[in-house]
Design a binder for these strands. Structure first.
Lengths: 143, 143
DNA sequence: ATGTTCATATTCACCGATAAGCACTTTGTT
DNA sequence: AACAAAGTGCTTATCGGTGAATATGAACAT
């Protein structure tokens, strides 16, 4: 289970440290792709195949579904973590997610997400995560 | 059942003593997350896996669900209690809950809560938790 | 009251993870 | 061939996390 929030910075070549606590869960080789809300998604190999399976079940007759599948598959790249714990983020993905220097990596259960730090902070101060909304969701789930 | 209120202080590295009476209930490894009202939640592993199971059922395509899952999982970290009974609170969680020196740990049935002492006092002197208000809510709940 | 034990507080030292800079290699372009 | 750009790998310094040692204080028994 991938959890936690970690701040690190890209080096001049666009490489990022994979937090030590995530490294063993996600594996030496993993997949990153364009994510939702302006971040990047990262999947371990097994989670990626799960995800692909789900995409396959979508009806190709539906334009929305076709767009959705294209979005995720076209942006996907396999990454490898080097001896020093870093991985390179392809330039098109860096551009998509506005990653330049300061980044935040978060674990979200089955995947990680990579955010531009500023965007992450903005997202968190947004009303989309108000205490009320969270409390409401908690009771809905019976927590 | 987790109960009681305990005051302790963080050391220079951000570690906190787990009160002896809570230690055996919560286990050697447990999970802390961002909580509501500016405190942190702490769950035993069994309570946490229940929670995780529920989160897994939420749909990726729903923004509300994404927000909710992100809040709890990105804010979560597994903690281990060391030989001296202490555990480290990750810096982002310390920041979130304004924990610097004096802290209060309370047991709340299925979870513990960790508060900045000042915040805890302020919260308790608030009128929202006057004995009268609580009694009123109790009758509403049919107690 | 005194001593004993257990829990908590405080300080210090060490080690590993990370940041940052640099050099070398590869690839593609002119 | 020469160069620029991108990718890969190494080295060093720093900082945060971790464990050990010691001090303080409360609870309890004699």
């Amino acid at each position: 289970m991938l959890i936690g929030e970690y701040e690190h910075s890209l080096d001049a070549k666009g490489r990022l440290i994979m937090p030590a606590k995530i490294r063993e869960d996600i594996g030496e080789k993993f997949i990153i792709t364009k994510g939702l809300d302006g971040c990047l998604f990262g999947f371990s190999q097994t989670e990626w195949t799960n995800f692909e399976e789900k995409l396959k079940t979508l009806p190709l007759t539906n334009k929305n579904a076709r767009d959705f599948v294209r979005f995720f598959l076209s942006g996907a790249i396999e990454c490898e973590i080097d001896k020093q714990g870093r991985f390179l983020i392809a330039s098109n993905l860096r551009e998509y997610s506005s990653l330049e220097k300061e980044a935040v990596i978060i674990g979200v259960g089955t995947r990680i997400e990579i955010w531009n730090k500023e965007k992450w902070k903005a997202y968190n101060s947004d009303e989309n995560i108000s205490a009320d909304a969270i409390a409401e969701n908690m009771t809905m789930l019976g927590i």
